[in-house]
Simulated scan of single mutants.
Amino acid sequence: MKWLQTLQQYFPKHKYAIDAKQLGDHAVLAWSNLGYWEDGQSSYPEAGQALAMRLADRLQLDANDRVLDLGCGQGASLLLWRQHYHVQQLCAVELQVECVQRIRHTLNSNIQIIQNSFLNLNSKTFSRPFDVVLCLDAAYHCDLNLFLRSTHFILNSNGRIGFHYLMLSDAFLNLNRFERLQLKMLLKAADVHLGHLQLEADLMHSIQAQGYQQIEMEDISGAVFSGFSNYYHEHLAQNVAKNLDDLKIQMTAKLCQKLFEQGIVRYAQITAIKDI
């Protein structure tokens, strides 16, 4: 059993787990997104926070909003909503058991944190609906329609939603069968299903069909894909991969670089308002 326990140390604890310390975030409640890398952005914690704030600011997050954070990861976003935006009514959903336990132990607050998939939400999950639902760098791991149906139940009328998703550029239409298969396998390694991704116009239509309006999409591929890849190659590439966590970061950086260079899959920030 000892050799098995030793071996398990080299495996990520969850398929969505990330070694934030390896990326440069040593906080107990660390960031776990690709980051938004603006000019002069040099550290991973700064970039992780920038991605979150860009989405929150577009949603006009307010201290009086009742807020739900879907896929809150290791908890850094919860601190941001509390400390910077002064949100008092805050709930969260996270699939990783260890993250949920760490957040509960560290914050020791009245934030309701549910250990579950954010695809399993309904009007009975929470006592009251929300004014704002945010999902940082996670929704593209699932079917968009399932995600939007799940969130629709728990939003107030005129409630705001903000999330990140991947969309296809027109260049996808020119790929042959073999090239599409290559792209499918490449995305599958990152737990993204090519069949879930759509062209921008189709994506817009799908969101409208699920009961949302005033939809805004912003292509931030350069600041996210290229930014994360550049950060890795400038600061981390010289490090030897010691375990699968390190290898995962390395492969993520290579995937981001390839997706950005190809220009076929784009990284979008999306905000919308629920229909009355």
Rank of each mutant, 00 (worst) to 15 (best):
T271Y: 05
H26R: 06
I276C: 01
I114D: 02
S117F: 08
T6H: 10
L181P: 01
M167T: 05
Q101I: 03
A190W: 01
L197M: 12
T271V: 13
L186H: 03
A52N: 11
V97M: 08
L247V: 02
L70P: 03
G24F: 13
T106V: 05
H86Q: 12
S157F: 02
K258L: 04
P129S: 10
L55R: 03
I264L: 02
A237K: 04
Y16A: 05
L68R: 05
R66P: 08
A171W: 01
L119G: 06
L247Q: 11
V132R: 03
H196S: 00
A56C: 15
L259S: 03
L107Y: 05
A27F: 06
L259M: 00
H193I: 05
V100R: 01
A63V: 10
G211D: 03
L148A: 03
S109R: 05
K258A: 02
P12S: 04
S150K: 11
Q262V: 01
S117R: 06
F126N: 10
H196D: 09
D202K: 10
Q115A: 15
M1G: 08
R54T: 11
R54C: 12
F147W: 07
H196C: 05
T125E: 07
N108W: 03
F153T: 06
H86I: 05
L34V: 04
W37N: 13
Q214K: 00
S123L: 09
A253I: 03
Q250P: 02
R128D: 13
W37T: 04
Q5V: 06
